[in-house]
């Protein structure tokens, strides 16, 4: 059993499992599943200043969400360290591998390439843009759009919200620009 769990999980197992979370949190606490609201709660808890967006009772509205993302950190440890795959290479398609090799990626082991994601790379223009600018845009955009992949692409589409469909179209528009136009400029 443990050996089976340590293999990469196929999409037809992972996708439905993630999908179950949406009805579960509605049923359990009338909560709409979304991860990026935790970023708002973290701001509200640490540095609300006089900003209206952060002036609310984050303990009451956000404790459930902060407890969940705390769990995700622990789950990341379990998944990445205890249940780590025997073969540490993500089985991406040959075409992707070829494209990334052409860009200059050489290390294909792990969840992310060590060519790009490390503290040394953070000090290079490419690493800084990927990690810091990328992270900033993810946080800014998710709160501006009022949801990220979980809140819009999954919860939002599962509840048939037109606003979420528009947001997901935006996710793809932005992602395509980054991958096809910005990344080639960065290498």
């Amino acid at each position: 059993m443990l050996e089976l769990l340590r293999q990469p999980w196929p999409w037809y197992v992972a996708g439905p499992l993630i999908g179950l979370v949406v009805p579960f949190v509605f049923w359990y606490g009338s909560r709409k599943w979304g991860v990026s609201q935790s970023l708002q709660h973290l701001c509200a808890a640490t540095l609300p200043r006089k900003i209206e967006y952060f002036r609310y009772d984050w303990r009451k509205d956000g404790s459930w969400n902060l407890a969940m993302v705390g769990g995700v950190v622990v789950g990341g440890f379990v998944g990445g360290r205890i249940l780590s795959s025997p073969d540490d290479v993500v089985a991406i398609s040959e075409a992707t591998r070829t494209d990334l090799t052409r860009l200059g990626v050489t290390d294909f082991s792990g969840m992310v390439s060590s060519d790009l994601f490390s503290f040394e790379e953070l000090l290079t223009p490419t690493g800084f843009v990927l990690i810091v600018v990328g992270g900033f845009l993810v946080g800014f955009g998710a709160r501006y759009a009022n949801g990220c992949t979980s809140g819009h692409a999954i919860s939002g589409l599962a509840t048939l919200q037109p606003s979420s469909l528009l947001a997901v179209m935006g996710f793809f528009a932005g992602g395509l620009v980054s991958v096809h136009f910005l990344l080639p400029l960065l290498f």
Binding site: G134, G141, N146, G170
Partner: peptide, 15 residues
Amino acid sequence: HAAGGTIFGLGWGLL
């Protein structure tokens, strides 16, 4: 949703 979503996507493609 359009603007925020696009900004989020730009970040998602990079990070």
